[in-house]
Design a protein around this nucleic acid. Structure first.
Lengths: 199, 199, 199, 199
DNA sequence: AATGAATGAGCATTCATTCAT
DNA sequence: TATGAATGAATGCTCATTCAT
């Protein structure tokens, strides 16, 4: 097996273990077992436990960025682009629940865990949204008074909170399609009933 | 000092320490020091470290629920109510950064940390939003095709993600007022430029 | 309640608790609860936890010595005396299982627990046996070549080991009467079959 | 060093430390230091502190059983067998005072310390005595009315109490030979003076 | 490169004892 | 005398990391 393969195997094992137990309750030996390597082998590929977590973020989210960017590249309409982002994100969060949990939970604490770590890939991921909005504003499709820096967080936060519940809740889940539909409705047109005299 | 005072003193100390170090890196002795009691004293008021965290959630969020509910009770208009919720939430998150961090970070992992713990108070808090939306729908102010169960998460997620950045970011922050303005704009009217021919 | 009564109440409570949990697993608060006094009250009557244990030994065994001595005083025959000792001892061990456990288990570790503690009362108790043997030797009832210092331990050890099993075993127990019968048979006449040609 | 060696090294270190300080006052770090391993290493070989104690019992007493059984196998005479048992036991208790203390003191509390622990090896050891007595009864060397279940305890208890004093006492000790002589005299022939008219 | 036995720092929790009331 | 809340020292055990093989 090549070094890159083993590196990757450990990353995937770690994602799974972090998702299941959380970073702090995950033991190196759990990851080693899951990756079918010896404990010590992990230290040939990573400096320490934090380094594994950072690598999970960078590589898994890097892969997300890549896939989403690719999907968006063929679509010119900013309205559709936003929908594609939402769809891709939610679909992947639903498909890869381990990654979803790691992003929703462990990523949050990363700043506290690891001094001087900036989630560069994560910023890059969220900035896809603001880029879309800016493009839409240039095309006069999105309102000029919307601040992309706030809107990107509102949009991502909405998606994130919804998908977060999927991991933990026993509530009846809405389907991805229903959810996208609602999210796009809210963000594009708002929740006011414009057909009513009350508004 | 009365028992209730000491209980409360420990809760506040714990909130501060959890916010600064995170649950796992927080030592009981840190909390004891912060609360100016002996380590052992903590165990006269709490069963264990997890119990402290749960109590922080329940009591601090319980207090949030109370304050927000009170503010909302005097306002009949669902549009204003949503704005009041957002304002109250963001203001408190900005004022009490320790609590903000604990909610944004530690609350997320709580399900994994503590078996059989349901964040009842937290659910109660978020349900304030869906209640407002339902009221608005009854009054035909909010669109009937909005699902309150999704919208509440989208709205809360948006607020949460925005306030989360306040705790960790070095980016230029938008003011609470600007943020509220943007959030209400997005949620009430959406981001589409309805004055443009493009829509 | 007089001080002496409270002292005594604590001793009895301690005997019970030490018997049930052992000295190290017994908490002062267990003893206090059992004696129906506050934890701090115990320290008005005893210096520390060890002091309670020593007092249990001294007072409970002192009471044993007294009772046994009294019973023996009316019997002149050394053969009967030995039997009375055995009967009294086993009867009391069976009746007062808490005391039995404390003597069999906790007394053993006392030397290690408490520096400079000599079980004076316990020595006194065992010396009752050697005194009986010496009297019997003077009366030419017991063999002159028996060393009382060894015989007293052999006799007490035999009784102790037998009664020890009563506290812990699920085996069918022999009755006190059967046991006395056997012990006296062994110690007085030995186990050899003197009617057989084989001896 | 092989794993078995390290296991054994820890057992011996633990025996020494338990003997010196008693189970509860013995710290894991004491045992580790004595065994010249790190604290954590102990947990590679034992589950917990109790497990070390049980292992000491099982292995050290197992070794006793083995040695005694071997010595007995070459001797057909039940009278000699009993003497061999006593000699072997007392010799080993005198030689290995640490083991002696652990058996005399810690073994007693083991039932209270460790739920569901049956001292199987210890029972096996004591049953050597009753087996000898039964054989002697079959050969009409030992009286038929002696109950082996009581006699085994009386015999062992006598030996145990005598050797117990060796560990703790400052009294002039009798030699092993003297002691064996007395014990065999008492158990085989009793303490009555059969040459006197008084009996 | 790979292994996994060994290390030892680190921490939650307990409980004997004190002392203000 | 009596109380019991408060104290804080003490320790079994875990697990990230190392390193001899």
């Amino acid at each position: 097996m090549k070094a890159a393969d083993k590196h990757s195997k450990i990353i995937h094992a770690a994602t799974k273990v972090f998702a299941k137990k959380g970073f702090f309750n995950a033991r190196i030996s759990d990851i080693a077992k899951e990756a079918k390597v010896a404990d010590g082998t992990i230290y040939l590929y990573f400096n320490n436990k934090f380094d594994i977590l950072i690598s999970v973020f960078e590589e898994e989210i890097g892969s997300l960025v890549e896939q989403v960017t690719k999907s968006l590249s063929v679509e010119p309409d900013p309205r559709k682009k936003l929908e594609i982002f939402a769809t891709k994100h939610l679909t992947m969060m639903k498909k890869n629940k381990n990654l979803a949990e790691v992003i929703q939970i462990e990523l949050r604490q990363s700043a506290k865990l690891i001094k001087d770590y900036r989630n560069n890939k994560f910023s890059e991921y969220i900035d896809i949204i603001s880029t879309i909005i800016k493009q839409g504003q240039e095309q006069h499709i999105y309102r000029a008074d919307i601040k992309p820096g706030i809107a990107k967080r509102a949009f991502f936060g909405a998606l994130d909170e919804i998908s977060r519940v999927w991991s933990i809740s026993l509530e009846t889940e809405y389907s991805v399609a229903d959810t996208i539909n609602q999210i796009m409705m809210i963000f594009l047109s708002g929740i006011l009933d414009t057909t009513s005299q009350n508004n």
